[in-house]
């Protein structure tokens, strides 16, 4: 592939704080990635459709309230739509106990407040490459 990853940054649920997701969008762009940015309050079926049409590698969910509780539902919906290769990451405020639950539900990585720019960029890029490899293997299968 000759791009460094395509990422959908979005918010589901009720919260609207977007300072973090806007900054992360800039980080990923500056690292050469293509970022689809949406506002808050997206519905899960719309996120799935959007991810499908845009053929993204990674979905980043920003959550500063309790919206991360909806992420397992999103992962389920992606799998049902045959988009299980898309890696899902969560950024924002997630209490430790609930972080474990998210990882078990299939979240690839959680970025807590204070996560460094380097770690965000490197890990998202690596996850995008993983997703892309899965797709290419599918082509060959």
């Amino acid at each position: 592939m000759n791009h460094r990853g395509k990422v959908l940054l979005t918010k589901i649920g009720l919260d609207a704080h977007d300072r973090g997701s806007r900054i992360v969008a800039t980080y990923l762009r500056d690292a050469g990635m293509e970022v689809i940015y949406t506002g808050p309050w997206q519905q899960i079926p719309d996120v799935v459709n959007l991810a499908d049409q845009e053929d993204v590698d990674v979905i980043g969910i920003s959550s500063l309230a309790t919206d991360h509780a909806l992420v397992p539902g999103l992962i389920q919906a992606l799998r049902e739509a045959g988009l299980g290769h898309i890696r899902v990451v969560v950024g924002g405020i997630v209490p430790n106990a609930e972080a474990d639950e998210l990882i078990q539900a299939g979240v690839a990585r959680i970025f807590h407040p204070g996560a460094s720019r380097e770690s965000i960029v490197q890990e998202v890029e690596a996850l995008a490459a993983e997703a892309r490899t899965t797709i290419e293997q599918d082509h060959q299968a």
Binding site: H3, R4, A25, T26, L28, R29, D30, A31, G32, M33, E34, V35, I36, Y37, T38, G39, L50, E54
Partner: peptide, 12 residues
């Protein structure tokens, strides 16, 4: 032009 990256926000 520097990084080759982009933020695509129109379709929202």
């Amino acid at each position: 032009p520097v990084s080759g990256g982009a933020v695509l926000g129109d379709r929202i």
